[in-house]
Design a protein around this nucleic acid. Structure first.
Length: 423
RNA sequence: GGAGACGUGCCGGAGCGGCCGAACGGACUUCACUGCUAAUGAAGGGUCGGGCUUAAACCUGACCGGGGGUUCAAAUCCCCCCGUCUCCGCCA
């Protein structure tokens, strides 16, 4: 939800943002008109309601003979109030619907345009090269007895898998390493619900353009979350939180579910794109004034992880047209995947400014003691997908995989993953 | 799954259908007193909107778990939903 005051005072700014995203800017004018209609209807209702209240006390004070006449008048007034209230409510809903169509105002400097218009901020690490034919992550995973797609498909269908043996350990190691780092950066760990109510799903904006990618349990009317961001954003909904001691940082550990509707035939091999995976997600509630600085910190912590895992990557500033409706800016970190000869997304971090918090009603007390919406930010710290980059980047000629030093403590000191016999 | 009780402000806890945005405690803020703290005394408060304003002040509406309804008038009466607690049963 955009700031309604901004809508009144500076609709041009909203239009500029809509244009940068490639969205319709007419919705801004529609929202302005709806806001006026709403306020007019509200004033009328309030005027009548005040009159009714005043009338009510006269009825009470009236003598027995006066009462019937007064009550008759009051009944008429009551009907008017009821009609005015219904109108005000309808106008308010129209305004909300119109305002919801406006997406978050992008931060200055975000590249204009669509998916292909991203700007590369930096490339880090040397792109790995091999003096042998590199194997892809699935081939390696099968040799190591780490990934079992066939049985995944047998049990649950396409895009499901088992992580077995060292594969299972590798994922846990990765997640634990991320968690340790999050803890040392002051994050509070949370293991979150992965089924949430419709209003929480709605509030986080995932029922917008991503609606068809979300699993829905019809009988219970619950949604399976595609990221713990959903539950983490809902965590402080309808609350006034205390940011006096700095931002509130949470690290959410959860399984994530994505239907991947519309991506048939894409990334069908291996665990790059799957229906279910694990993720450690950073989520921050911050003073809006600190949001951009915090966003940079989140990217920094993500880069620390990739560097510790000795991966080659680039950081991109995602273009306005490719941002989710809640995001004002988004940085993706993409790791080099040798067998694909390209960079693939391992992390994504968004600054949602106050957009998400306004919808979920999460506020804080500013210096003047007044409440104001907080800024929310989120970013990936580790996911199952990272295994793809790790296996491919650190593979050796015999199909073994060198374990990056930083990860070894989480694998009982293991230095190399070796293919299992008969694989 | 069955039976019952309950959901009021930051917390505890009252509340006859109109005098209730809500008694009374506590916490909190400010002021006074005290060498400091404590204690004591006094005063003050919620949230979200609308109007008028440079702003404050001011006027005004909504909000007593959520949503409907009855009534001239609802925290108070009725219905539905959600949540919490207790007991019984069942499964772990």
């Amino acid at each position: 939800m955009i700031d309604p005051v901004l809508l009144r005072t500076d609709p041009e700014q909203l239009k500029r943002s809509q244009r940068a995203r490639g969205n319709d800017e007419a919705v801004v004018d529609q929202a302005v008109a709806a806001d006026e209609a709403r306020r007019g209807a509200l004033s009328e209702f309030e005027r009548l309601r005040a009159e009714q209240k005043e009338f009510g006390s006269r009825v009470k004070a009236a003598s027995k003979d006066e009462k019937p006449a007064l009550i008759a008048q009051a009944q008429e007034l009551a009907a008017q109030v009821k009609a005015a209230e219904a109108l005000a409510k309808a106008r308010d809903e129209e305004f909300s619907a119109a305002a919801m169509r406006i997406e978050n105002v992008v931060v200055d400097g975000v590249p204009v345009g669509g998916e292909e218009n991203f700007v590369t901020l930096r490339e880090v690490g040397e792109v790995p090269s091999f003096d042998f034919e590199a194997r892809d992550h699935l081939e390696l995973g099968e040799m190591l007895g780490a990934i079992d797609m066939q049985r995944g498909a047998k049990v649950s269908g396409a895009r499901f898998y088992f992580l077995s043996g060292i594969g299972a350990r590798l994922e846990i190691a990765l997640m634990n390493m991320a968690l340790d780092r999050a803890l040392s950066n002051g994050f509070t760990p949370l293991i979150t619900p992965t089924l949430v109510k419709p209003e929480i799903m709605q509030g986080t904006g995932f029922l917008g353009e991503h609606a068809d990618e979300v699993y829905h349990l019809k009988d219970q009317d619950l949604f399976l979350t595609g990221t713990s961001e959903v539950a983490l954003a809902g965590f402080h909904s309808d609350e006034i939180i205390d940011l006096a001691g700095g931002p509130l940082r949470y690290a959410g550990w959860s399984t994530c579910y994505r239907s991947e509707a519309g991506s048939h035939g894409k990334d069908t091999r291996g665990i790059l794109r799957v229906h279910q995976f694990n993720k450690l997600e950073m989520f921050v509630y911050a003073d809006p004034a600190e949001a951009e600085a915090e966003h940079d910190r989140l990217v920094g912590w993500q880069e620390d992880m990739l560097q510790a895992l000795e991966l080659s990557y680039r950081v991109i500033d995602v273009a306005a047209g490719d941002l989710g409706s809640s995001a004002a800016r988004k940085f993706d970190i993409e790791a080099w995947i040798p067998t694909q000869g390209t960079y693939r997304e391992l992390t994504s971090t968004s600054n949602c400014t106050t957009y998400q918090a306004r919808r979920l009603s999460t506020r804080f007390r500013g210096e003047n003691g007044k409440t104001a919406p907080v800024a929310t930010l989120n970013g990936t710290l580790a996911t199952t997908r990272w295994i793809v980059a790790i296996l491919e980047t650190h593979q050796q000629a015999d199909g073994s995989v060198r374990v990056p030093e930083a990860l070894r403590p989480y694998l009982g000191g293991l230095e190399v993953l070796t293919p299992i016999a008969g694989a």
